[in-house]
Amino acid sequence: MSYPVFAEIPVKPEYLDDAIAAVRGIVSETLAEDGCEQFLLHRAADGSARLFIYERWRDRAAFEFHHAQPYTLSVYKSYETWLAGPVTITELTDAN
């Protein structure tokens, strides 16, 4: 069974373009990870400085592996300056 998650990332407006570029910069490496099934970046349609990532992993271990990778840790290091608040990660389940 897959492990889907939804991340909401509130960014300081002056860093929004940098944050988008940073996440886009790790998409190909992330999708190449053995356990990654889907990794989609979106921005808020209302124009606010919020990013959203829908991720689906083979299992929680694959998700945790992703968050331990140097390219992911590099983005999180930048978040220390860029974020307007905490990242919210919501675990999802099928509604069937």
Rank of each mutant, 00 (worst) to 15 (best):
M1I: 12
P4N: 10
A7P: 04
E8L: 14
I9S: 06
I9W: 09
I9T: 07
P10F: 01
K12D: 08
K12Q: 14
P13S: 03
E14M: 06
L16F: 06
L16M: 11
D17R: 14
D18E: 11
A19P: 00
A19Y: 05
A19I: 12
I20L: 03
A21D: 13
A21P: 06
A22G: 10
A22K: 08
V23W: 15
R24V: 00
R24I: 00
I26M: 11
S28F: 12
S28C: 09
E29P: 05
T30I: 10
L31E: 11
L31T: 12
E33N: 03
E33W: 05
E33Q: 06
D34V: 13
G35P: 02
C36R: 03
E37W: 08
Q38K: 14
L41G: 03
H42T: 00
H42E: 02
R43V: 11
A45E: 08
D46I: 03
G47Y: 05
G47N: 09
S48N: 04
S48D: 11
A49N: 04
R50L: 07
R50M: 07
F52I: 14
I53N: 03
Y54C: 03
E55N: 06
W57T: 04
R58W: 02
R58D: 07
D59E: 11
F65K: 14
F65N: 13
Q69Y: 05
Y71C: 06
Y71V: 01
V75A: 09
V75F: 13
K77F: 09
S78R: 14
S78C: 02
W82D: 01
L83H: 08
A84T: 10
A84S: 15
A84H: 04
G85T: 01
P86Q: 13
T90C: 12
E91K: 14
L92R: 05
L92V: 02
T93I: 07
D94C: 14
N96V: 15
N96M: 12
